[in-house]
Computed example of a mutant assay.
Amino acid sequence: MATSRTTPSKTGRSAGRPKRRQNLTVAVTGPTGTFGSGLLPLLEADDRVRQVVGIARRPFDPSARGWSKMTYRRGDVREPDVLRSAFAGADVVVHLAFLITGTADRETIRSINVDGTLNAFRAACESGVRRFVYASSVAAYGFHSDNPDRLTEDWPVRPAARLFYAQEKAELERLLTAESELHPEVELYFLRPSIVVGPNVVGGKADLPGVLRPLGQLLPSRPRRLPVPVVVAVPALTLQLVHEADVGQALLRCAVGDGPPGAYNIAGDGVVTAVDVAREFGAWPVPLPPGPVRAMARAVSAVPFLPPFAEWAEAASRPAIMDTSRAKKLLGWAPEYTGIEALRDTFADAET
């Protein structure tokens, strides 16, 4: 299986880069999703940013969200001409548009995720953009048995066995790296967050991604201890969580900061287990060995003709825990929330 490594030297030229300019125009695809909720307020508040262009298929009113710098442009990432027009005059493109799951067929998902991302990068290059930031994922590493206990950015991205989301994230990092070799004038950044949580995660508990979704059904709607302890059998699966606001800070530093291009792992401090989470909310957890759960996850993910959402079972087959020291050192990034704190804040404003 072919692998690739994403290093600063392979994703744009870090040597001799000009100092970041002021009065930047930043174009953002998919600005109204979870990542956009973390990034856009920061772009609004940053005096280096003069204008923000938000590209989305569905109309929205930036002023209703308090985004005074933003101009809305209707756009679909499957339309290269529209993207070139929207990116005209932009200094930076932050590409957030991506389908995670839903009712769309696989052909549509791929046309948006893979083809749409390549369209965005090529349109950015043709429009004279100097920096391209791609929101990747820890899933790009795959869930392989030989993955190290702590993944650094030097470890190769490799397609997962089944999960389409992870496969496409790994494929896109390789494709974008190859494209960037043809456009060394464009600085390319990959941001690899762990599971992202926070108050703007769409749909609350029911739509938490990956292995966290079943766990969310065990938790109360607000971050308070249960009035009466409940005994719960919980597999001791390990998780890394990151708050949407901390992802926004990392995206901002990639977009307008002085850190070198390349890949950056992003996660809240601390590794959380399902047992820790259950105990945090006042339950009496009975730990179950993770081995049988991982084996079951591998078995489920091997079932043919799974719908896209069911492929997420593979994420439980092997923990993907990242080292985030590179982002802290080179981007100057540090998470405000630990993993548990990020989880608490997710449920803080949920309805009872």
Results as ranks from 00 to 15, higher is better:
F87A: 04
R162F: 09
S111C: 04
H95E: 09
A97M: 03
Q167S: 06
T103P: 04
R122T: 14
A124T: 10
R150M: 10
T103D: 13
F87G: 08
Y141F: 15
E79A: 08
F98T: 12
A161T: 13
L163M: 15
T101Q: 13
E126F: 09
L176K: 11
P156Q: 13
E179C: 10
L99I: 15
L96F: 11
T152N: 04
A90I: 05
A178P: 00
P156H: 11
T108P: 00
I112E: 04
D146H: 09
V94R: 08
N119G: 12
R106E: 05
E173R: 12
T101H: 09
V157T: 13
S111M: 07
T152W: 00
D105Q: 05
E79Y: 02
V186S: 10
A86N: 01
F143P: 00
V129M: 06
D105L: 06
S85W: 00
G142E: 03
A88H: 12
V82F: 00
L175F: 00
L188F: 08
F98S: 10
T117S: 15
G89F: 06
N113G: 09
V92W: 03
R158S: 09
E79G: 02
I100Q: 07
L163Y: 15
R158M: 04
E107S: 13
G116N: 05
I109S: 12
S137V: 01
A161G: 02
L99R: 13
L172G: 12
A139T: 10
L191G: 02
L182G: 11
T152I: 06
S85C: 01
S85G: 13
L96Q: 12
A160G: 12
S180T: 14
R84E: 14
A104Y: 04
H144P: 08
S136Q: 05
T101W: 08
E185M: 04
S136W: 02
C125W: 09
